[in-house]
Amino acid sequence: MDALVNKRIKRVMKGDQDAFAEIVELYQHQLFQICYRMLGNRHEAEDIAQEAFTRAYVNIHTFDQNRKFSTWLYRIATNLCIDRIRKKKPDYHLDAEVRGTEGLNMYSKIANDEELPEEELMRMEVQERVQYEISRLPDKYRAAIVLKYIEELPLAEISEILDLPLGTVKTRIHRGREALRKQLSNL
């Protein structure tokens, strides 16, 4: 798999877009999944996943072929997601009009620190509720939890993606897990 990917990357480095289409084909679902779990809505996830692929394409020359391509790609995507989350917060508070915009469901509009009323939570499907609680986690815990439990990546790889020491990754996973436990205790 890695040899196959590296072969395509060499072609992409020479500017071959068809080879890159094959790479997009290969990683699209995993990358979209990461973005979706981080951002909590399909519309934004698609936007950011596309942006991540575009950046990977444009900066392909900076990729070190001795490393794992997926790690590099996921790193671009998680950074973009975290940027988006941080930019989104003030937008939300400042501009109430955005609330009714099409394509964004109401849960995605909820800022991390704003809680839904209890009866609203009870009406949610389990899947929906889990996604909602993940999107309420602080972004640094969210990235670690998504990579660990949804992408099921080894801790060492997560530490490389997030560019953090292994110990910090563990701490974030522990805290994220603990926060989710409390948030989901009434489920």
Binding site: H29, F32, R42, E46, V126, Q127, Y149, L180, L184
Partner: peptide, 21 residues
């Protein structure tokens, strides 16, 4: 909690994702 998070159904990229990208 872990089981819930892991059971979150795996979402797929939209069908025209590659083309659009």
């Amino acid at each position: 909690t872990i089981a819930y998070v892991q059971s979150a159904s795996h979402v797929q990229a939209p069908p025209d994702f590659v083309q659009k990208t």
